[in-house]
Amino acid sequence: MAADHGHHEYTAGGAHAHHILPQKTIFLIFGLLLGGMALTIWAAFFLPVKSLLENTFFMQSLALGIAVFKAYLVVTYFMGVKMGTRLVKIFAIGGFVWFFVLFVMMADYVSRPMEPVVGWEKVPSSALPRDTVKNPE
């Protein structure tokens, strides 16, 4: 029963004292986020290693890696998952995991060609104009 919650200590805003993200952490995360953004732009244009700059896979992985790290910071600290209940953690993780189930669709596209027949768009469309009312057959 809810009656035996003896340890309630609420701040003036109604939050549990241990749920509050310290001001110092907020500034630190903000700094890291700005640093991540600067790093992304710097790497995209001014990376000194020429061979890496022309390696699409590496550059894309780097940019996405930094983005994932920034997202991790925002979700964990700003959105309070780190201090949240177990349930909040499950929902936060579950949402991002399920996002990848959508990518099962890519299995279809890697296992078949998706090239349209050359010149198909010049063939007169059989779908328009539809004259089905006058000629039902």
Binding site: T11, G13, A15, I20, F30
Partner: peptide
């Protein structure tokens, strides 16, 4: 685009502070 990223990160920061102060009752 970069300017917008900067703006949004800043706004996220101010929101985090807003929640912090709301929890403190300020």
């Amino acid at each position: 685009g970069g300017l917008n990223t900067l703006i949004l990160l800043t706004s996220s920061f101010t929101v985090a502070l807003a929640v912090h102060f709301a929890q403190k009752g300020n």
